[in-house]
Amino acid sequence: MISTSSQEPQQHHKKLTRAMTILLIIALLLVIALATSITLLFTIGLQVTQSSKSSSTTFFAPNNLFVSSLSEPCTCGCPSIEPTFDDEKKVIAARIVNGQTARAHSWPWQLFLVVQDSTTDLWHTCGATMLTQRHFLTAAHCVHGGLPPNMFLLSGRHVRMIDTSAADIHIVKNVYIHEGYNIFAHNDLAIVTSEEPLRFDSYVSPICLSSPNSPLLQADEELVVIGWGAVYGEPKNLSFPDYLQQVKVAYVPTSNPNCSRIFGSSFALHPGQMCAGIPGHNACRGDSGGPLMRRKRLVNTETNYYWEQIGVASLSKDCGWNSTWPDIYTSVSYYHDWIVATVKRAI
């Protein structure tokens, strides 16, 4: 028989108490680390007002869930390669149809989205923009009818050609289409996620998004549209560019008949839709899902700017081929809360 002293149970109890205390400390540290990681994931590329020194541009503001000051170095909307335009006044005298080739890699948040329709097996292409390393904003009609894994993103691109051996191809994991999307392109918005996180570099970085707190757009305010869509708008003779195109357009308020009556009295614009264009300056087929942007000055600077996405390309009446109608975009600020909620739950 093995005998033990009366002190051994007490010593054993003290050791057990110390071990439990250490385990609790480790668990607490892990929880803090996890919370920090989640916060970092959602603040990459997502801007909110933090203080009086921050930009008035906000993104993901509800309950101040995501807080990141907009100061140099930019966390979003600041390309390493500055966009340039043809003339010194920075006014493009052409449209994406018959438009101007963008400076290579000067729009690092632009992605090329390729989708196979699950019903027809046909492939089509759209644009998309980077919000985080795994979350991308596009138009609902671009991904409606498509199913992963027959859907992929190409990042850091300038050329339109698809090279299936390239390392910049990313398989889409999940698709989140706005619940109210319909055949009239109301609520024409979707977020897709990638299987693996993309790596940020000079050619790949996120765009800032507008929110209800962003300054209101003014009539004729200068905006920019980019995409790999058709460069020749004749419906029966569309042709597509080899390189990413860009064009400056103007904001057209929904109160303007050129916007409100673009598809006639039987087609009423949804509150989440907006118009932009200049007669003969349009987006076209293949530009859908891409960004409508404006340039904004960084706080406390005179020469430095960043880019904010205010719309997602949705509809064009005829690519400016035979009319002076503007194009229809999905308003980013209008869907601020939906984007917040979707990015939070998207995996």
Rank of each mutant, 00 (worst) to 15 (best):
residue 117 D to G: 12
residue 117 D to I: 10
residue 118 S to K: 15
residue 118 S to Q: 15
residue 118 S to L: 15
residue 118 S to N: 15
residue 119 T to I: 06
residue 120 T to D: 15
residue 121 D to F: 15
residue 121 D to A: 13
residue 121 D to P: 10
residue 122 L to K: 09
residue 122 L to N: 07
residue 122 L to Q: 08
residue 122 L to P: 00
residue 123 W to D: 14
residue 123 W to M: 15
residue 123 W to T: 14
residue 124 H to M: 01
residue 124 H to V: 01
residue 124 H to L: 00
residue 124 H to W: 04
residue 124 H to S: 05
residue 125 T to W: 10
residue 125 T to P: 07
residue 125 T to Y: 11
residue 125 T to H: 12
residue 126 C to D: 05
residue 126 C to Y: 05
residue 127 G to V: 05
residue 127 G to N: 08
residue 127 G to H: 05
residue 127 G to A: 11
residue 127 G to I: 07
residue 128 A to Q: 02
residue 128 A to P: 03
residue 130 M to H: 00
residue 130 M to P: 02
residue 131 L to A: 07
residue 131 L to V: 12
residue 132 T to S: 13
residue 132 T to Y: 03
residue 132 T to M: 05
residue 133 Q to V: 04
residue 133 Q to H: 12
residue 133 Q to C: 06
residue 133 Q to N: 08
residue 134 R to S: 10
residue 134 R to L: 03
residue 135 H to G: 06
residue 136 F to V: 04
residue 136 F to Q: 02
residue 136 F to Y: 07
residue 136 F to T: 01
residue 136 F to R: 00
residue 137 L to C: 09
residue 137 L to H: 06
residue 137 L to P: 02
residue 138 T to W: 04
residue 138 T to K: 04
residue 138 T to D: 03
residue 139 A to G: 14
residue 140 A to R: 01
residue 141 H to I: 04
residue 141 H to V: 03
residue 141 H to W: 05
residue 141 H to T: 05
residue 142 C to L: 06
residue 142 C to P: 02
residue 143 V to W: 00
residue 143 V to M: 01
residue 143 V to K: 01
residue 145 G to I: 10
residue 145 G to R: 07
residue 145 G to E: 10
residue 146 G to H: 02
residue 146 G to M: 06
residue 146 G to K: 02
residue 148 P to F: 03
residue 148 P to D: 06
residue 148 P to G: 08
residue 149 P to L: 11
residue 150 N to P: 11
residue 150 N to W: 12
residue 150 N to L: 08
residue 150 N to A: 14
residue 151 M to G: 01
residue 151 M to L: 15
